[in-house]
Design a protein around this nucleic acid. Structure first.
Ligand SMILES: [Zn+2]
Ligand SMILES: [Zn+2]
Ligand SMILES: [Zn+2]
Ligand SMILES: [Zn+2]
Lengths: 142, 142
DNA sequence: ATACATCCTACAGCCACTAGAGGTTCAACC
DNA sequence: GGTTGAACCTCTAGTGGCTGTAGGATGTAT
């Protein structure tokens, strides 16, 4: 049986985050000691590891909730899980395109600055006027 | 003189966002009509355009605040602005590396799924066990 | 028995907005 | 001058995914 701190250490999660996941119903309410402290077993360890790994891969907590549900029903067909993963992949690909445009712009800004007064600073000039940009980086979402 | 709605349209900003920027001191308090409605001039239009463009390039509002300050002092040397831009570039580059790792992992998950029961779903298997991953995508920040 | 690390709840704060309620003002049209 | 009705106003609360703090209780080692 693990204390919340031990579980936190094993999964690379903060204690508060574990309590937060419990609060939003992503982790089940664990057993408690007589004094009221949480104690965890292997099932919870597995579940939290799953959550953390999915978070590292960029899945939202909503998506993770669905994935956990599916994982709890081994006989269901898996296309729902695959759909969620493909959706996530698409989002990542879109963000990549967008970030590459940002990198291009930022590199150019930094490269072209000659290091004089702010009045002549290329960085500030570009920020003042998007027509100085070579890429269209104007879509939503950072 | 522009109403807040006209300013919003010109800069691709929501009205509430403009009021929010004013509230946090990023935009100055504008003049008002007798009835209390905000009216904006060209200075505010330029400033808001700057803010929006910098946001599109991924700068935080904190960084933008610093950049605006620098922009207001044309005789200062510009290395501070350049430092901020370089920092932002670094962050973008780090996110790119990370997102590329995610893309690799997600692509593999999706590709290897054979479409059977969730018990055998490759997507869920990988999520359960990071040692199935080829990349180290475990750094912080999505 | 005492020290003290760890645990508990409850709530506030972070970022950058976004949405809504409930009321007022402005501009145009008749 | 009166009447619409869109756009404005303030204020509050919510989003996601945590993180931090206050103030107190518990667990364990010595
Ligand atoms: Zn410069
Ligand atoms: Zn631009
Ligand atoms: Zn599958
Ligand atoms: Zn992994």
């Amino acid at each position: 049986m693990l204390t919340i701190g031990a579980l936190a250490r094993k999964t690379g999660t903060k204690v508060q985050t574990i309590r937060y996941y419990e609060q939003i119903g992503l982790l089940p309410e664990p057993g408690r000691t007589e004094g009221g402290q949480r104690r965890y077993g292997d099932a919870e360890l597995d579940r939290l590891s799953f959550i953390r790994h999915a978070r590292q891969l960029g899945f939202s907590l909503g998506a993770i909730r669905e994935l956990l549900d599916l994982s709890d029903h081994p006989n269901k067909p898996c296309h729902e899980a695959d759909t969620i993963a493909r959706r996530q992949l698409k989002e990542v690909e879109q963000r990549l395109v967008r970030l590459e445009a940002l990198r291009t712009e930022l590199e150019r800004m930094v490269r072209e600055c000659s290091g004089g007064r702010t009045a002549d600073c290329r960085v500030l000039e570009v920020l003042r006027d998007h027509s100085e940009c070579l890429t269209d980086h104007t879509e939503a979402g950072a």
